[in-house]
Amino acid sequence: SDYEVNVNGIHHRFHNISEELIKFIEEALRRGEDLREIIKKVRELLG
């Protein structure tokens, strides 16, 4: 049904976003950045 496609589409989009965010955060932590600064950047990215 349309509803299922829609829900799956939304889930898929969020899954991709969270994968990208996790990579972004892991790389920043590897560079020794402060978690609070990383979260601030993530918030800015998400608008």
Rank of each mutant, 00 (worst) to 15 (best):
S1K: 14
S1M: 15
S1Q: 14
S1A: 09
D2M: 03
D2R: 01
D2E: 06
D2L: 04
D2Q: 04
Y3D: 00
Y3I: 03
Y3F: 11
Y3N: 01
Y3L: 06
E4K: 02
E4F: 04
E4R: 01
E4P: 03
V5I: 14
V5G: 01
V5W: 02
N6W: 06
N6A: 07
V7Q: 15
V7K: 05
V7C: 06
V7S: 07
V7P: 02
N8P: 03
N8Q: 08
N8M: 04
N8F: 01
G9E: 03
G9F: 00
G9W: 00
G9V: 02
G9K: 01
G9H: 03
I10K: 08
I10R: 05
H11Q: 12
H11G: 07
H11E: 12
H12Y: 12
H12N: 02
H12E: 06
R13H: 15
R13L: 15
F14S: 00
F14A: 00
F14D: 00
F14R: 00
F14E: 01
H15Q: 15
N16Q: 06
N16L: 05
I17Q: 01
I17K: 00
S18E: 03
S18F: 04
S18D: 07
S18C: 01
E19D: 13
E19W: 11
E19S: 13
E19H: 13
E20A: 12
E20G: 09
E20L: 07
E20N: 11
E20W: 09
L21R: 02
L21I: 11
I22C: 02
I22F: 05
I22D: 00
K23C: 07
K23E: 13
K23F: 15
K23R: 13
K23V: 13
K23P: 04
K23Q: 13
F24E: 08
I25R: 00
I25H: 00
I25D: 00
E26A: 07
E26G: 07
E26S: 07
E26V: 10
E26P: 00
A28D: 07
A28G: 08
A28C: 04
A28I: 04
A28P: 01
L29S: 04
L29K: 04
L29Q: 05
L29F: 06
R30L: 12
R30S: 12
R30A: 08
R30Y: 14
R30P: 02
R31H: 13
R31S: 10
R31T: 12
R31A: 14
G32S: 11
G32C: 03
E33P: 03
E33L: 12
E33R: 08
E33C: 06
E33F: 09
D34Q: 09
D34M: 09
D34I: 06
D34W: 06
D34K: 07
D34A: 12
L35V: 14
L35W: 04
L35Q: 02
L35A: 09
L35K: 02
R36S: 12
R36N: 14
R36V: 11
E37T: 10
E37P: 05
E37A: 10
I38L: 10
I38E: 00
I39Q: 03
I39S: 02
I39W: 02
K40D: 14
K40G: 08
K40F: 10
K40P: 04
K40W: 11
K40A: 14
K40H: 11
K41Q: 15
K41P: 01
K41L: 13
K41S: 12
V42Q: 00
V42G: 01
V42F: 04
V42N: 01
V42S: 01
R43S: 14
R43V: 12
R43L: 14
E44H: 08
E44Q: 10
E44F: 08
E44S: 06
L45F: 09
L45D: 06
L45G: 06
L45Q: 12
L45H: 12
L46N: 09
L46I: 14
L46E: 11
G47V: 11
G47E: 12
G47I: 12
G47K: 06
G47Q: 11
G47Y: 08
G47C: 05
